[in-house]
Design a binder for these strands. Structure first.
Lengths: 330, 330
DNA sequence: CCTTGGCTTGAAACCGGTTTCATAATACCA
DNA sequence: TGGTATTATGAAACCGGTTTCAAGCCAAGG
């Protein structure tokens, strides 16, 4: 019942444990006969090297710490997926902790990961200030996804530009009263997107109407509530720029409830292009965030950093995918 | 720059490393003065115990292996979320590998986890046969989620009964021609649900019409394709039992494209109750799978097993949540 | 005052690998 | 054939903790 170790192999194969180690890792040439003996013994006993022991000896744990944010939005989930997928074919395994988008939790989580001697860190979103990250993770290869923090290696999207493009597109379709539902108050993405919205309005010489800018929290419910409220108060608008697809779904439902046809009366644009967006009725026009790919990129970057290569931050471009939730109202 | 170890603490505090270990783990009584000295040294040097070393010494890695299936359906993703969340406040950390729902990959993945000396295993879905799991994981606490394998500890849903209830509900609303879109061919959930569908039909004395049973793959696209095809071929039906919510979204879109009102002309029932279901237009009537909770349960069970307690499999009940995608056609 | 018993404590063995270093064996060349 | 350069190999140290074990200490009891 006891675990078989490298010593058992050594005994059975009639060599020293050093030789066994060398065969297993291919770190030095050994005589073909001995090599064969070791391989046979390994096979016969079904030996599985103890990764923990080898981690300790090598000083490399072959694990990557991943800080997730389980805030229930598909964007961050998809990034995690990308990370898992990317490490699947490497000798590294990702180990997950959740920060719950709360500074204290996040710091604790990062500490725990460091205690596990991870070889690198992927920080997905989060709210820990830049300087603190620098402190905590100094000397440890670290990549941040979904946030752009100068001085760190990041994989992020050009949110401002995307929101600008999306708004500009709506304006080009003849929309003048474009409601915007912002994401969480202090969330950088939300701030950036709102900035893009403003820029497009400004550029087109359109006024920023306060009653059209609303604060949500990235949830579907916030879209439902806010648009319902707007309608009740008879605020007029012909388009909605939603914080993300989830919010857009809420918006669409509010409109459905009030028998307002989409896109004939009101157009909608979302953010993310999550799986479901293409199957809404009508299919949602949205800004595609290559979230899963961002997870992959981050992992690839991290691997390179671990290999000692130097890396630049990556800004991925969002892309407005035009489907059927926007109408021209010339 | 070098890492500080327990020896450094011992030297600074003027005690032996044994004592330091005892203070850190509280495994034995030590003189208050020494205890204080150790704590101060730990604090002052910012000492972080090396989990890898302690894992090796204790023979417990404090990690849990999780086999995921990144097949792009929200159900399995949600289970993973539950697992991460549940372990977040324990000294255990989950480590993820993806099996891609392919036997070979899965076995490799499990092997890799065992090599890492995980203290327990959570197997989410997957297609490895029961006996092989028994072989691979013998002696290792293991919980399987989303599958019911006799002889193993499982957390699963009563799919047959749920599909039965859902179908019965449709029949009660006056539906006679109920199309069913099955999930992946050999997927147990799909098989069970279809069995429930058949049982309800049989019980109501309704014939099983072959043209109404279609094979999909849990994707939205399969719903879109299949219903589009049915419509083109003028097959008549008044309701669709979809493989899952994603498929239901595809179904809904196909109907939208053909100007067939939901639920007035065709009713839809999904499976999962994923986040988006409640915000479809109209909100989707669906069988709620408490996926995230299943992840939590599985983790809790595993923790108990690790503690040596004995555990039974858990069958969670799905629940038909009635929203607005089903109409009565008496 | 001496003995017995219970506690705290440090030395050393141990977990299972990797890696250095010295040695033995082989190959090479004159 | 002898001497040196080169390899292959094993012994032992090491990674950073935990745990056993025996010794040292102090208090209580006879």
């Amino acid at each position: 019942m006891k675990n078989i170790t490298i010593d058992d192999i050594a005994r059975v194969a009639g060599v020293s444990k050093s030789t066994v180690s060398r065969v297993l890792n291919g770190t030095a040439k050994v005589h073909p006969d001995k090599k064969k003996a070791v391989e046979e013994a390994t096979e016969r006993l079904g030996f599985q090297p103890n990764v923990v022991a080898s981690s300790l000896a090598r000083g490399r744990s072959m694990t990557i710490g991943v800080l997730t944010q389980l805030m229930g939005t598909p964007f961050y989930d998809a990034i995690s997926q990308g990370v898992i997928a990317e490490f699947n074919d490497t000798p590294y395994s990702p180990i997950f902790v959740d920060g719950q988008w709360q500074k204290g939790e996040e710091v604790d989580a990062i500490r725990a990961l460091i205690g596990r001697r991870v070889d690198g860190l992927v920080l997905i979103g989060g709210s820990v200030p830049s300087s603190e990250i620098a402190n905590l993770c100094s000397g440890l290869p670290t990549v941040i996804v979904g946030r752009n923090l100068p001085g760190h290696k990041c994989v992020y999207m050009n949110n401002e530009a995307c929101a600008y493009e999306a708004t500009k597109y709506l304006i080009a379709q003849g929309h003048r009263d474009i409601a915007v539902i912002r994401g969480l108050e202090h969330h950088q993405d939300a701030v950036d997107r709102f900035a893009g919205y403003q820029r497009a309005l400004l550029e087109a010489g359109l006024p920023l109407k306060q009653e059209l800018v609303q604060s949500g929290d990235f949830s579907a419910d916030s879209g439902l509530e806010i648009v319902g409220d707007l309608l009740r108060r008879n605020v007029s608008f012909t388009a909605v720029l939603a914080a993300n697809d989830l919010t857009a779904m809420g918006v669409r439902l509010a409109l459905y409830r009030n028998d307002i046809p989409v896109p004939e009366k009101v157009s909608i644009i979302g953010f993310d292009d999550q799986l479901e967006a293409a199957y809404m009725s009508p299919p949602l026009t949205t800004v595609k965030q290559p979230s899963r790919k961002m997870g992959s990129y981050a992992s690839q970057c991290l691997l390179k950093m671990i290999d000692g290569k130097s890396i630049d931050s990556i800004c991925v471009d969002g892309e407005l995918v035009q489907r059927e939730s926007v109408a021209s109202i010339q």
